[in-house]
Design a protein around this nucleic acid. Structure first.
Lengths: 401, 401
DNA sequence: GAAATTCGTAATGGACCTTTACGAACCCGT
DNA sequence: ACGGGTTCGTAAAGGTCCATTACGAATTTC
C-alpha cells in the first residue's frame, strides 16, 4: 500500500488551500456572491472577502454586476476572469485535426477543424502551429498566451523516450523525441493523452459518465480502445497502456486470426473493429460488403446475412465486456467510435443479453455516447482546464510569497 | 469526473491534521524522538511537543526510554501505546478459521487457528465468539476492548441487504441480514472484506506488492479470484465484485464448459481451478488423477500427460492474464492460492512466454506469493490497523472538543 | 419614507504555528 | 572531576489566519 503518509501543514498553507477552494467554487457555481461562497465553502464572510481580494489582485477573478434579491442590499457577483488563462486542446484524429481554444471555465471560444494532411512529425507540427496561430488570433492573443496545451493522439505516449507507441497511423512519431517536438506548437506546458482516454474524460465531464464513479468509454471503429475512469479519475495503468483492449484474447478460432498480423494488431481489434465486421459479412456470403455502416443498414432492413454478421459482432463485444466486467465491475459502459455510434441501436440490447449469459454478475449499463466525435475535445478541454487552473493558482501563490 | 471539490479548512482542523501526521509518523518510524518527528513532519519542535502532549493525554502515545546520541542531551523516545487499540482479524477459510489480535502498530500478538466446523451462521458465529473470547483473554482484555474487527470471507459482501453473495461454501450467509450478525463477535465496528482482496492488501503491505502502485494478487486453488490494487489502494468496483475473474470468458470449447453449471460457476474457474486441472489430466489419459498437486508432482517427474495438463493450465491462466493486462496494464501479478503456490515454479515461465505471444504489450512481472496462507490475515490486519488508527484519533479529537 | 432585510467590512479575539532564546542534560577529553 | 561542546526541551514573543460580533450601507417592500 503506497504510504503517502499524511502531510503536516502550516497556517500559510491553510490560506492557499482555502483560496483554492474559493476559486474552485467560483467555477462550479458560475457568477456567485460572497455570501454564497461562504455558504459553499463553510468559510466566514470576511475570509471570503480576503480571498477574493487576493484572487482579484492576481487577475484571476473579477466583479460582474449585482444580484438583487427579494429584499436587502444587492450582492456583488464574482466570476473567473475569462482571460486569466487559455487552454488549447488538439485532437489529432484520423481524417481531421481539430483544435479548440477554451477559457478556464471550460467554455470553448473558437474552433478549427482541418483535414489531415501528411502526418509525419514535421508536416503535422507545421500544420498545427499554423492552426494554433489562426485560433489564437481570433481571440486577440498569441500562442505565447496559452496557459496549457493538451494533445489527444492515438497510441501511448512514452514519456521516457518521448515517443508514441502503438500508433501505426502516425508515421515517424514512434521515434525517440518525436513527441517532445509538440513544444513548438506553443511555449506553454503541454500534456499528451490517448484520444480514447480523453473521450472517457469527456463523457465523465459532460456526457453519460457524469457523476458515475467507475465507468469506461469503449470505442469501436477503425480500431478499438477503452478509456477507464475509476473513482472519478482517469486510470492510465503502469505504463499508460490501460484500456488497450485491442489485445483482449477474444475471437480465437475466428478465421481472421489465421493472419499472422492479427496478434500484432490485437485479437479483439482484428475481429471486432469495422473491417472485422465487413470480413465477417463477406465470409457469411455477402462478398461485396465494403463498410460496417452498410452492414448495419442492411441488418436493419432485414438482410439475414447482415444480421448474422451483427450477431458475430455482438458476440465478440459481449466477450470483451464480460472480461472487463469480471475484472473491473463497472457501473456503465459508454459506447463510442464509428461502429459504436452507428450500430449502437442494433448492438446494445443483444450485447446485454449475451453478457448476462456469460457472467453471473450484474452487468454494467451500456449506452451510446451522446457526445459523438467531440468527446475527445471535450475531454481534452476538461483535462486542460483542471491542470491550467492549478497552474495559474500556483503562479499566484508564488507571486504572493 | 467526480467533483469532490477541494474542501476549505479552519485553523482547528489544522491541528487535527498535524496530530494525525505526528501519530502516523510515530508508527512509521517506531520509537522516535521529538527532533526526529519535527524533521519528518516539517513541524517545529514546540508544535511536536504540544501534539505529543495531546496524544499522550488521550492514551495513544507514551514515553519509552531515552536515546543517547554521540553528544548532547539524550532525547526522550515516544511510541504508540500498544494497548491504545486492538484489531481483531478473522480469516474464514475453507478448512480453518484463523483469528489474530494485533495492536495498532500492526504487530500480531496472539493467534488461533481452528478447524472449520459447521459453517452456517449460527454455528460459525458461536465458534468465532468463543475463539475471540480465548484470544482476548490471552492478552488480558475482553471482546469489548477490541477497537475494530475485520472479517475476511469468500464472496461479496452486499451492504444493502447484509448478505454474502457468491460464497456457495458458506451456507445460509446469502440470506438478508446474515452478515449483520457478525456484530455478536465483538461490540466493535467491523468490516467485511473479500479474502482475496485482503490477500492483495497483505501483499501490498508486507509482501511483493510493497511499493508497487498497480498490481494484482491472483488466487488459484479450489476457486479463482483476484484482488486489485490501484494507486496503492484496494479497488473494489461498483458493487464490490471487481476481480471476480472466475467469470472471465476463457476456456470456450473446453469440454468442461458443456456442463450447464459451468456458467454459473464461471468459465475461467471451471477450467483453471484445481479440479479443472485434474479434469484436464483425466481427459488426457491419466484417469486416476485426483489432485492438482499430484499432477504438478508428476509433471516435475517428467510425466508427459501431466506436463500436457500443465500446459493446458498455462494456456488458460495466460489468457486470463492477457485480458487483465489489456484492460489494466499492471506492473506485477502475485500468484497465490493452492495451485499458484504449489505449481508456481512450473507455471510462471511458460505463462510469461505464452502471455508475450498473446499481447503485444509489455506483460507484468509474475511472482509467487511470499506470504502464503497468511496473506489474508496480514491484509486484514493492515486494513484494520489503518481504520482503527482513524477511529482512536477521531475519538481523541471528539474528546478534546 | 420608514421598516425590514441583506450585504460588506471593521474591530476584536482566539487558535495555531514559528522563531528566538535559554536552561537542562549529556558526552568527551583533559 | 570538571569544563567545553552539543543536543534536547520549553518558555516567551510574534505573526498569520480565521471566526465572531457589530455596525454602516444598500435595497426592497409596504
Amino acid at each position: 500500500m503506497a504510504t503517502d503518509h499524511q502531510t503536516a501543514s502550516t497556517t500559510t498553507m491553510l490560506r492557499v488551500m482555502n483560496e483554492r477552494a474559493v476559486f474552485g467554487e467560483i467555477f462550479r457555481l458560475g457568477p456567485v456572491s460572497r455570501p454564497e461562497l461562504a455558504q459553499a465553502t463553510g468559510l466566514s464572510k470576511p475570509t471570503i472577502s480576503v480571498a477574493l481580494a487576493n484572487l482579484g489582485r492576481a487577475g484571476l477573478v473579477r466583479e460582474v454586476g449585482l444580484r438583487a434579491g427579494p429584499a436587502g442590499r444587492s450582492a456583488v457577483l464574482y466570476e473567473a476572469r475569462p482571460e486569466a488563462g487559455w487552454v488549447l486542446a488538439v485532437d489529432i484524429g484520423r481524417s481531421f485535426v481539430r483544435l479548440v481554444l477554451a477559457n478556464l471555465a471550460g467554455t470553448i471560444v473558437t474552433r478549427i477543424d482541418d483535414p489531415s494532411g501528411s502526418r509525419n512529425p514535421t508536416d503535422l507540427l507545421a500544420q498545427l502551429t499554423g492552426l494554433a496561430d489562426r485560433l489564437t488570433a481570433q481571440v486577440g492573443i498569441t500562442r505565447a498566451d496559452v496557459t496549457l496545451t493538451v494533445f489527444g493522439t492515438p497510441g501511448i505516449h512514452d514519456k521516457e523516450t518521448g515517443s508514441l507507441h502503438l500508433a501505426p497511423n502516425l508515421p515517424g512519431w514512434d521515434l525517440p523525441g518525436a513527441v517532445d517536438r509538440f513544444s513548438v506548437v506553443s511555449p506553454s506546458p503541454y500534456l499528451v493523452e490517448n484520444d480514447t482516454d480523453l473521450a472517457a474524460v469527456g463523457e465523465a465531464t459532460h456526457g453519460l459518465g457524469l457523476g458515475v464513479a467507475h465507468f469506461a468509454y469503449m470505442s469501436i471503429g477503425t480500431g478499438t480502445g477503452m478509456g477507464i475512469v475509476i473513482d472519478g479519475k482517469l486510470y492510465r495503468g503502469a505504463r499508460g497502456c490501460a484500456g488497450e483492449i485491442s489485445y483482449l484474447p477474444i475471437g480465437e478460432g475466428d478465421p481472421l486470426q489465421d493472419d499472422p498480423a492479427a496478434t500484432r494488431r490485437g485479437m479483439f481489434e482484428t475481429v471486432a473493429s469495422a473491417d472485422g465486421i465487413v470480413a465477417a459479412a463477406q465470409r457469411l456470403g455477402w462478398t461485396k460488403a465494403t463498410s460496417a455502416k452498410e452492414v448495419f443498414d442492411a441488418a436493419r432492413a432485414g438482410d439475414p446475412i447482415a444480421q448474422r454478421a451483427v450477431e458475430v459482432e455482438v458476440n465478440h463485444v459481449a466477450h470483451a465486456l464480460a472480461a472487463v466486467t469480471a475484472v473491473l465491475d463497472l457501473e456503465l459502459i459508454v459506447l463510442g467510435g464509428g461502429v459504436g455510434v452507428q450500430g449502437g441501436d442494433l448492438l446494445i440490447g443483444p450485447i446485454q443479453d449475451r453478457l448476462r449469459h456469460l457472467v453471473a454478475l450484474q452487468p454494467p449499463r451500456i449506452e451510446v455516447s451522446s457526445l459523438g466525435a467531440d468527446a475527445v475535445l471535450d475531454g481534452a478541454v476538461a483535462v486542460g482546464v483542471t491542470a491550467a487552473r492549478d497552474l495559474v493558482l500556483d503562479r499566484t501563490v508564488a507571486a504572493n510569497a
